[in-house]
């Protein structure tokens, strides 16, 4: 989906935050919106229900400035978590260039993480993409809850559950506190731009 305007030397690409319901996708975007004011280009749009659940998705446009003479623009999206919105989830994933998989560190959400990753794999496959090939970064969120004595999955266990085969970069995070949010996004942008570069050789 990345849109190239070679004349104007512009690139626009799409990164999707994926993960089970309530794992902290929207919170990631909110933090980015607050903390990267210079790069944010416009409003964060959230389509919510009255209870604050994401109904369709959140959307945040960003500009990364010039990279090798190209103006790079990025659109960040999140997907809704609940099972009944599976068609919206798929729609948001359409034309995706890079994915951040946000996993919930709560022990009680272990299975939900695995199901969601599997769901991601299937939806990508329907668009002819492989989870093994797409630029992908893992985030193990809600690490801060350990302080309150809430049972969390050890990071090693999460690696085994979710990342043993994928072997993608992974980061612990606390989206409410903002830790790990920036590095997750940067790594995903790096991988995404690298893969687009390979695909289109735009930086020659």
């Amino acid at each position: 989906m990345a849109i190239f305007n070679l004349k104007k030397r512009e690139i626009e690409c799409k990164i999707v935050y994926y993960g089970p319901g309530r794992c902290g996708k929207t919170t990631n975007l909110e933090f980015i919106f607050k903390s990267y004011k210079k790069q944010v280009r416009g409003e964060m749009v959230s389509i919510n229900t009255e209870g604050d659940r994401t109904l369709f998705f959140d959307f945040l446009p960003m500009g990364l400035g010039k990279i090798r003479g190209c103006d790079v623009r990025v659109q960040l999206y999140t997907v809704p978590g609940q099972v009944k919105y599976s068609s919206t989830r798929k729609l948001v994933l359409r034309g995706v260039d890079g994915v951040v998989f946000v996993a919930d560190s709560l022990e009680v959400r272990r299975e939900k993480n695995m199901l969601s990753l599997k769901d991601l794999q299937n939806n990508l496959k329907d668009y002819g993409k492989s989870i093994f090939k797409i630029p992908l970064v893992m985030q193990y969120n809600k690490r801060d809850l350990a302080e309150q004595g809430i049972p969390l999955m050890p990071l090693e266990q999460m690696e085994r559950d979710l990342n043993r085969q994928l072997k993608v970069p992974s980061f612990p995070a606390s989206a409410v506190k903002g830790s790990g949010v920036g590095i997750t996004l940067k790594e995903c942008l790096k991988l995404t731009l690298k893969s687009l570069q390979k695909e289109f050789k735009w930086a020659q």
């Binding site: 199901l115 990753l117 599997k118 794999q121 559950d161 043993r164 085969q165």
Partner: peptide, 12 residues
């Protein structure tokens, strides 16, 4: 499906 992605999602 790959071994650790093997969980079947209850489809909608």
């Amino acid at each position: 499906p790959a071994a650790d992605l093997e969980l079947e999602l209850e489809k909608d």
